[in-house]
Write a protein that binds this DNA or RNA. Structure first.
Lengths: 126, 126
DNA sequence: CAGCTTCATAACTAGTTGGTTATATCGCTG
DNA sequence: CAGCGATATAACCAACTAGTTATGAAGCTG
């Protein structure tokens, strides 16, 4: 099986590369993951989002900018407010990438592996 | 639906937090993703891994250390070599987190949503 | 043991990140 | 229009990142 990424090492990268860079980088911060979790239950303004954190409002604004550049959040205007909305599509790209590795962590992998070994030993070496 | 992360904002974080931080941070670099992709096709030594990159060997060693601290790679000794093996279990944790957002990107979400609306309108308001 | 290969470590650098405080802008509302 | 609430921006800082070169250690192999 061929997984995405390695052959592109010197020739430049795959199309999704920048998207994956931005997405994973955005997800690497617990504050930002918490913000996404909050937005999953509905749109929210900056101050609403900032409330539960022990962090200044500008700090949250910065996190939101990171999420926005990664395409994980969009914002509209509403008077002085800037409500944020979850845009999860980039997460799909991330999951798609991760899914390629599913067989390396599941029990099913080990089971499939053993099964293949058994089949091979029945049929004898090629 | 309640998603993981937000309520922990001031009380400290969920158990997986550190793991997710490390995993997503590790995945945010295209070189490291490429290394994982390579390892998915079998164990490899440091120099083997370094070959396709325009990067020095110490640079690769550093990337490997990042992957190792995130638990995504393990290494054994074999004479002077240090073959690396893919350890994908942390990826499962990452996917588990991401799966919570599935309904925000899929068409199936819209469909499920409409379905629920229909059910509700059939049964009348509670 | 001399020397090659494999890999790690140290020391340095430039750029990025995640936070701060202070200040400016925008848009209601009295 | 004064003033307040909501948000963004600027300037600054400490810590971390991703790379470099130079060097050292471990372990084969002639």
């Amino acid at each position: 099986m061929k997984l995405r990424g390695y052959e592109d090492a010197r020739s430049g990268w795959t199309d999704d590369t920048q998207q994956l860079d931005a997405t994973f980088a955005a997800l690497a911060d617990p504050t930002r993951r918490a913000i996404l979790a909050r937005l999953a239950s509905g749109d929210a303004t900056v101050t609403e989002l900032a409330k539960p954190f022990r962090m200044s409002q500008p700090a949250i604004s910065k996190h939101l900018k990171v999420l926005e550049r990664a395409g994980l959040v969009s914002r509209r205007r509403e008077a002085q407010r800037r409500p944020c909305r979850l845009e999860a599509r980039p997460l799909r790209t991330a999951v798609d990438w991760l899914e390629d590795y599913r067989r390396f962590w599941g029990e099913s992998y080990r089971r499939l592996d053993t099964l293949l070994d058994e089949l091979r030993s029945v049929e004898g070496p090629t």
